[in-house]
């Protein structure tokens, strides 16, 4: 299976999934760490993919969403955004709604 197919499967099988550098327990980049914190603040149960451990996914995810940076958040298969947008949605209370909706 190529990277695009693997990503499609991952975002389909997981209601909330974060592509990040490192792991939620040990983020390797401030933006990834911040995204984890905001998701956890919303009570999100989410899957994560450490792109540093998978070069194919690291490049493939940038093409998948036409988005050049990590982290990337997907909810119910839809690309939500990177750290700036996650922060913005959190401040507006919209991240909570997305998370709650995905876990209902």
């Amino acid at each position: 299976m190529n990277a695009q197919d693997r990503i499609k499967q991952q975002v389909t099988e997981n209601n909330i999934i974060l592509y990040m550098k490192g792991t939620p327990q040990s983020p390797q980049c401030g933006f990834s760490g911040r995204s984890v914190q905001l998701l956890e603040a919303c009570g999100a149960k989410f899957a994560s993919v450490n792109v540093l451990a998978d070069q194919e996914i690291r490049e493939g995810i940038k093409q998948y969403s036409n988005w050049p940076t990590i982290p990337q958040l997907y909810i119910k298969g839809q690309f939500i955004g990177g750290c700036d947008i996650i922060t913005d949605l959190y401040q507006k209370g919209e991240l909570q709604k997305l998370v709650t909706g995905a876990q209902a």
Partner: peptide, 8 residues
Amino acid sequence: KSLVEQHQ
């Protein structure tokens, strides 16, 4: 445009 589109 959505935020995602603006950043793109």
